[in-house]
Write a protein that binds this DNA or RNA. Structure first.
Lengths: 328, 328
DNA sequence: CTGTTAGCGCCTTCAT
DNA sequence: ATGAAGGCGCTAACAG
């Protein structure tokens, strides 16, 4: 294959060990003179270190793995940017693997890939881990952390928004705007996120002594099409004046459906979305949102992984805020 | 660290060599009986193979690396999906690395990371490689291919749309709609893509005996803000009735700017965008686009890499088509 | 400051 | 069908 330190050693007239020391910058273990010789030889030969060999012997890696579900919204980009920025500062290389959408096999495969390479840490972004993979993840003995998706009990450590608060504040905002008939659209009740947000929605309503009707909640899976369907349902079957959309894309679907039925936003119907990605600002009307701190999730995620090497991490919440735009 | 084949060998009462053969599924090299014993022991111990060791000795990898520039549009998602789907079929694992935006250092770092691990192939998606990294890429002796971004001379092999045709057909479409004063907005003249599309734009105009004025072309970098600025420029300084937007995001910027100035789309101003991602369908008005085959680029990219292991690949174009929507 | 030695975990001839 | 032995490229004591 390629050039090895032996080749360099020969050319520079030193031992492989010395070459290794120079190339690893183990300062104070060699003279500048030999160092120069070695570096020259390395460059001349076009040497590329063999990381497999290095990691095999050192039992260490400076690779941080990010396992991510198929991107639904652009939230993931922000998280990844946060990860990337922070990782660079810590001199870590990050590799990203896709694990599909609720696909246990792909999840397993991605996990195995990174575990077999004994990366120094694993960040799971927007991954709804299939329980059958729990053991695999745990037994790998590699620090890991979930981002963006939390858990009810203490299944695994995570960093996410406080999704109960997300649901609560979105609803509360609409309430304060004077709405009393408020829908909750396109969230997936099978996910922890969906459940928590729904609970927040209920609580906000109940705090205002409002009893939601059953069909105010229209389930979905956070998608554009779900938003479309939700709004069609609302206009046909309910007398709502506002709704919480489970994602930016769902909100866009709702807006488009509303528009095609001749509804004015926000006069006839107000929508607040959850996420607050750039989509909210480029749509017309611009979409009011509960804005999550995706970038910060990435930053904190890396910092947490780096901070310790063993043991469970403490789960945490990143801030959320209401960004008022034109759809409410 | 972890469990090794030696541990399994001991537990199963066989030699490490046998364990290796069983676990690598080298059929016909062992009896079913011992195989069963070995597999049982492996599972019981929670064995995870050490890929570093495997690749070190076999000098082979089944990891395909994707180096990608910071995502500007959602085109990259489609490419990655194509890559992922195809890679799975070929039993390859794919890892994705970010290389920032025109950042020679990050590019270099990403390249080194994957080269040092001697991946079996490198796909460079939307990467405008800094010339100082050319040598690194070439000398690594790893099959590679650029996706989505092409080159003028034969610098490197690539798969992309025919960007001259992209510019030509976008313009020609507007021409056939009856427009004679057509702008070309927000493309980066420093990129090959920008240059080719501009050339196509000119040619289409000249084929219709139209001489474009200098300020019909408004440079940018394919962004939303560039679209905004371009439209502001056009309405103030020109008498255009239509324009080609360099990307979906740029088109959205143009539309929003037009709307805020009270222009009707497409009656007062028509826009055709380049890319054709989902953004085109969720915007109102929906945006007519030159639609690229991003998914196919990913598929073909993997297939090409897998097809051979040495030598330069043949550059190719993937199809483009006009998708007419509401903005023209 | 530098060379020698002994592996890291695995695969792969070569024997048996 | 299985075991023993050597080595992939590199680092980390241990000597000097």
């Amino acid at each position: 294959m390629g050039i090895t330190i032996k080749d360099i050693a020969k050319l520079a007239g030193v031992s492989p060990a010395t070459v290794s020391r120079v190339l690893a910058n183990q300062s104070d273990f060699y003279s500048e003179k030999t160092a120069k010789k070695v570096r020259q030889a390395a460059k001349k030969l076009g040497y590329q270190k063999n990381t497999n060999a290095v990691e095999l012997v050192t039992q260490k890696s400076h690779v941080l793995a990010v396992i991510i579900s198929t991107i639904q919204t652009n939230a993931a980009d922000q998280i990844i940017n946060g990860i990337q920025e922070t990782a660079i500062k810590k001199n870590l290389d990050v590799i990203i693997l896709y694990a599909g959408e609720k696909n246990a096999d792909l999840q397993k495969r991605a996990l195995e890939t990174v575990i077999e390479r004994s990366v120094m840490g694993i960040l799971l972004v927007a991954i709804d881990l299939d329980p059958q993979n729990d053991q695999l993840l745990k037994s790998a003995n590699i620090p890991f952390l979930f981002l963006s998706i939390g858990f009810l009990k203490n299944r695994f450590p995570f960093i996410s928004s406080d999704d109960f608060q997300v649901g609560y504040q979105a609803t509360d905002f609409l309430l304060r705007k004077g709405h009393t008939k408020i829908g909750f659209a396109a969230a997936d009740p099978e996910t922890v996120i969906g459940q928590l947000r729904l609970a927040g929605y209920w609580k906000a309503l109940s705090d205002h002594h409002i009893t939601p009707q059953l069909n105010w909640v229209y389930d979905g899976e956070f998608t554009y099409d779900d938003g479309l369907a939700a709004m069609a349902h609302y206009t046909k079957k309910t007398a709502l004046t506002a709704a919480v959309a489970s994602s930016d894309l769902a909100a866009i679907g709702m807006l488009n459906q509303a528009q095609s039925q001749g509804l004015r936003i926000p006069e006839d119907f107000a929508v607040i979305s959850i996420d607050g990605t750039f989509l909210c600002s480029i749509m017309r009307p611009q979409i009011t949102s509960v804005t999550q701190s995706f970038h910060e999730m990435g930053v904190k995620g890396v910092e947490t992984i780096v901070s310790q090497t063993r043991g469970q991490f403490q789960s945490r919440h990143t801030p959320i805020k209401i960004t008022e735009r034109q759809s409410t």
